[in-house]
Structure formats: structure tokens, C-alpha cells
Write a protein that binds this DNA or RNA. Structure first.
Lengths: 140, 140
DNA sequence: TTACTTATTAATAAAAATTATTAAAAAGGA
DNA sequence: TCCTTTTTAATAATTTTTATTAATAAGTAA
């Protein structure tokens, strides 16, 4: 609780219970979409509105607290901002796992960016496939 | 025209005018979202319905003709399927440029995948920032 | 070509997702 | 505690996407 409070304040946002609950849910599960977040938060905070969840997710994304993870064929998920990492996304069950490793060839990237005069601000690497769980089930 | 016809047929889809027009628009611009595609296609094919555009984009995505490019804070774009590449996405103007280069460290990726027992099927690398056009304008 | 069979389209309609509005409530600082 | 400002909740309104189905068009084979 204290932790999320300071994250919010450090990023210039008021630490409301709604926001902290939203962050707790996302932190607990890693990646969640708006509906999933609402469904969890409403359990402990029955008066919260879905619009409030939308608005807070937007504000926290704009203020570097959350990061949107757009996905092929699914609703976007949100995660708490953290250092560069890779997403392993299962096309079967939709699970997302973080790998805390930077797989991008930084030198080649820098060259591409400088050739294009492109000012870098962030990246996302998504790897799609089938997780171990789903591939073992699929032996049917 | 001939080209897109064979792409469709090679992937087991009938080559209708609607589909070929959609592919032409995407091919012309590189990346387009559903509304943009509809707006272009309707110019030369006034009777087409938005639902038809949605359905065909879905079918062509499912049949490896198109690839969805989900984006942070924007509607997903679609591109014609091609080899592994990187997207340079401008946060200012929304432009997307392809770089035909594979920046991912393949050996490290293989190691991650084998550790996790994750069956690879595809990847997407998006780099966000400011394109040369927008950064030169922003000297204001 | 023509007739036939099947898949696709267009036009709704319906559902789902997202954003806007505003009075009431809550947060943070004096 | 009081005051000012921001945020919430509860709609309402949009926007986006999907479903339905009769009409149409595509591909196939005679």
C-alpha cells in the first residue's frame, strides 16, 4: 500500500484508494485489462465505477505509472512501469510472462535510429507462441 | 492486382474485389487502421460496408495475409504480412516506418524459449519515439 | 457458357468498449 | 479544521466491433 502511494506521488498524482487498489490488482497479477481490473477492484470497493477505472488507467499511463501492453487479437493489458523486458504471450490461453532481459541489439538499434534521425523514447518486444502449459495439454 | 489475387488464393481465400481493394490500400500506405481502410476503399467502391471491411480484415489476418499491429494509445493498424522487421512509431504524428532488420539476439531468445518450454510462433518489436519530421517541427 | 453449389457481401441491428459530463465527495495543504 | 482543487460515481453518449441474414457473387464442373 505504502509502496504504490509513493509511486503515485512521485509521479505527481494524488494517492486515492481507487488508484492504489487498481495498482494492487495489476501488481498482483502482472498484466490485466480494464475489465479484469474492474472485476477485481469492485470486490473490495463495490462503489467504484468502470468509468473511474478507465480514467485512472489513462491518467496513470500518461504519468508513467502504468504501461499499456497492446496485444494482437486481444484487449490491451496494463502493467506497472518497469525496466526493459520481453513479453512471452501465449496464443492459446492468453497468458503473459515477463522475461527481464534485453534481447535487442542495442548497437544496431542505435544505428537505425541515427540513420532515421529518430528520437528514441521506448520499446516493446512481444514474442507470441504457446506456453508450456498449453503445449502439454494439446497432446490430445 | 494480380499480385494480391495470388496472395489470397495461396492462402486459401477467394479473391474478391473487396479484399483486393483492401489489400491495395494497405499496400499503398503500409499501415492503416480499419477506419482509414474503409475511408479509402469506399472512394472506389461506394457500396462497401464497414462491416465487410471488419470481416475481411479479420479473415485475412487469420489466414496469414495480414498482420495486426497493435499500438499504444491508438487503434490497431494492419500491414501485409512480410518478414521480420521493426516498427519505428512516432508518438507525435503516429507514423509507422518499417525497418527491414532483425534486431533481436536470436541466441538469447532461443535460450529463453527453451528454458520456458515456450513454442515460438512470431514476434513484434516496436520502437516508440519522435520521427525526424516531428522533431524538426518541434523546434518551436 | 450455363447451371449449380458454396462462400461472401451489404445492410441492418445488436453488443461491447470507451469517453464525456457534472454534481457530490474526498484529498492535500494552509 | 477549513478551503481549494482534484477526483469520483453515475449517468449518458459515442465509438468500435460483432452478429444476423437475405441477396449477391465466386468458383466448379458439365
Amino acid at each position: 500500500m505504502k509502496n504504490y502511494m509513493s509511486i503515485l506521488k512521485d509521479n505527481g498524482l494524488k494517492a486515492t484508494f481507487q488508484r492504489m487498489h487498481i495498482l494492487e490488482v495489476i501488481g498482483m497479477y502482472g498484466h490485466k485489462d480494464v475489465d479484469e481490473i474492474y472485476a477485481e477492484v469492485v470486490k473490495t470497493h463495490p462503489s467504484i465505477s468502470l468509468a473511474t477505472v478507465y480514467k485512472n488507467i489513462l491518467i496513470m499511463s500518461q504519468n508513467n505509472v502504468l504501461v499499456e501492453v497492446p496485444l494482437i487479437g486481444r484487449k490491451a493489458k496494463f502493467e506497472i512501469k518497469k525496466d526493459c523486458h520481453v513479453h512471452l504471450i501465449c496464443k492459446e490461453c492468453g497468458s503473459i510472462e515477463d522475461e527481464d532481459i534485453d534481447l535487442v541489439d542495442i548497437n544496431s538499434l542505435k544505428e537505425v535510429l541515427s540513420n532515421k534521425n529518430f528520437l528514441y523514447s521506448g520499446q516493446e518486444l512481444n514474442v507470441y507462441g504457446t506456453c508450456s502449459n498449453c503445449s502439454s495439454i494439446k497432446v490430445s
